[in-house]
Design a protein around this nucleic acid. Structure first.
Lengths: 337, 337
DNA sequence: ATAGTCTGTCGAAGCGCTTCGACAGGGCTT
DNA sequence: AAGCCCTGTCGAAGCGCTTCGACAGACTAT
């Protein structure tokens, strides 16, 4: 293992000079800088992370807490995680992957040990146990998701309220009057993650203004659950012509079932999905959808975190504006029979 | 920040004693141990990761390199990553998330800086640029996947050859004679990741023994690509009655298309998927499938890595035996017309 | 010419921990 | 009773880096 001292000796300067070349915190003459950089190259020097962390009390590591359960939006989580990792690297940070398993203890461990300089939390619940800890520590953090009380916190999330409203608007504009919302699995609502409720609230509020009737049904993914849910919806509101689906694993079953029942998409019924673009374009019908901007969320979370680490940046809630892309699954409501 | 020294003072012992209580590397009397543990509790002490890494030259961190591209098996990757993280924690290790983006440089950086004690690589290509580096360093590593040359390496993977054979056997046993393999996107083959080829080789070899005719077609996911691929297959081999699908995003489109063409599953055609169980059970038909044991792969990779870190454990290739679960998508071949 | 200001470099301290050798004291053996 | 070996504890060195204050030398202002 090559050390700073060896580089210094090789370049004929003192250790501190090498350190300053590396950090740029003091001015160094062009000639020495070159000599040092040359030596670093030749010897293949890499600063020792532990020593650096100890001396500077900054680890250059960001902790990312991902949910342990994988009952929803797995590709989204993955995409966020990857976006976080790549964005962090462009700022010279590495990412430590924590699972939700340890819960609040993980927060204590990370802040206590100086393992990471800051953290990003995903899958935040409305009244998350980790929040008091985050507020108590002076270590910067960013949430991806929105808890009930955001005071003293920085949060990044899709504006799910606006997303719901956008869906309502689109369907209303096409002349639909009775719409159904296929929601996440009941477990998601019980866990109080918030985003599902916010979507629904936004959608309901806008629907009221536009005169839409809304029926909401949570739904486990899969064919059987969807079949049951759809049957109930059509039983209760046979005139339903618009569907908003917020559950990746219900999308394809829904399309198959509609097909099977002889209801053509988009001629007879319209379907909007709230899902990543990839899902929308690969479905059996190219879906009109509101995208979940996973990359953007990950990237913004990191940018805000870095801003806080550098003393810039304040607590704030960043809601990303939803965008609806019209594809082949929505069309004018059929004339009333 | 509480330090070792403060704990020592609080407990009325020396710093080294506290250290030995923590590490258990020397015997400590029950009474002092208790006193020290008490102090640790009271003061809320967490050892400083940087200092520990510097002094012991072990970071207690495992690096995990995940693929940057997300063109395939994303849920599998995620599941593996989570399994790695949780298993690592049970052994006292944390996980550093690296993306494939940096390529070989990431390996240099991690080994050079002592950021991690060991690494796990996913998405290994047959002739991966990172392999020479891994062989050159004395830092332990485990691959998830199988390169062309495994000498000096430890690898964990599903036995895709046996997986292919298993699919062939199942279909042959049911009386099918003409089968088609819907493979991964062409890009996957071009990248030489190996697993797709191995599946095919295993399947072809067993098919030859069993007298099956095999048609292989790579396929981008999605409805349109699948439609094209299926049309070509049925054009070339109209008598095809068995499908093996190794591409998550082709599964549902295939089922929809078959339905649309009036070919009933499993009465007219049988479909086997090579995919995680979750996908198989949530599809519009409950799919007979060979599971991709993501959790198991992640867990085993960590176990082997830990073994190497502890001096036990040797270079070896661990192939996980595939298991075929019969569900509702396969049945006897229809009588010849 | 003198004092004052920069610029570039160095030496030394110290970050919080692990670990090695030393050693006091108690229990054996002989 | 002398010598020995354990067991449990301590002190000190040192891991590789950052950073602070010091300072030599070159330059500017008076």
């Amino acid at each position: 293992m090559v050390t700073l001292a060896e580089v210094a000796q090789h370049a004929g300067v003192s250790a501190s000079t090498v350190s300053y070349v590396l950090s740029g915190k003091r001015s160094i003459s062009a000639s020495t800088r070159e000599r040092v950089e040359q030596s670093i190259q030749e010897l293949g020097y890499h600063p020792n992370a532990g020593a650096r962390a100890l001396a500077s009390s900054r680890s250059n590591i960001i902790a990312l807490m991902v949910p342990l359960r994988t009952d929803m939006y797995v590709p989204v989580m993955m995409e966020i995680a990857i976006a976080v990792a790549t964005t962090a690297r462009t700022h010279g940070y590495d990412v430590l992957l924590l699972t939700g398993e340890e819960g609040p203890d993980a927060v204590r461990r990370v802040t206590g040990s100086g393992l990471a300089d800051a953290m990003i939390l995903m899958d935040v619940e409305l009244d998350d146990e980790r929040l008091p800890l985050l507020r108590a520590t002076d270590q910067p953090s960013v949430l991806i998701g929105l808890p009930a009380d955001t005071t003293g916190l920085t949060c990044v999330d899709l504006d799910f309220g606006a997303t719901g409203a956008l869906c309502a608007e689109h369907l209303a504009l096409l002349g639909h009057r009775d719409i159904a919302v296929i929601g996440e699995a009941p477990a998601v609502y019980e866990r109080h993650t918030g985003f599902a409720e916010r979507t629904l609230d936004g959608l309901r509020a806008r629907s009221r203004e536009l005169g839409l009737r809304v029926l909401h049904r949570p739904c486990e993914g899969g064919y059987d659950a969807m079949a049951l849910t759809l049957a109930r919806i059509l039983d209760e509101r046979p005139g339903t012509t618009g569907f908003v689906v917020q559950n990746e694993s219900a999308v394809e079953p829904l399309l198959a079932l509609l097909r099977q029942k002889g209801r053509a998409v988009p001629e007879d019924v319209s379907v909007i999905a709230i899902c990543p673009d990839q899902v929308a374009t690969q479905a059996s019908v190219r879906l009109t959808s509101v995208a979940i901007p996973a990359q953007d969320m990950g990237r913004q979370a990191v940018e805000h975190l870095i801003a806080k680490l550098e003393g810039r940046g304040k607590d704030e809630v960043v809601l990303i504006a939803p965008e609806l892309t019209v594809r082949a699954s929505t069309g004018p409501a059929p004339a009333a029979p």
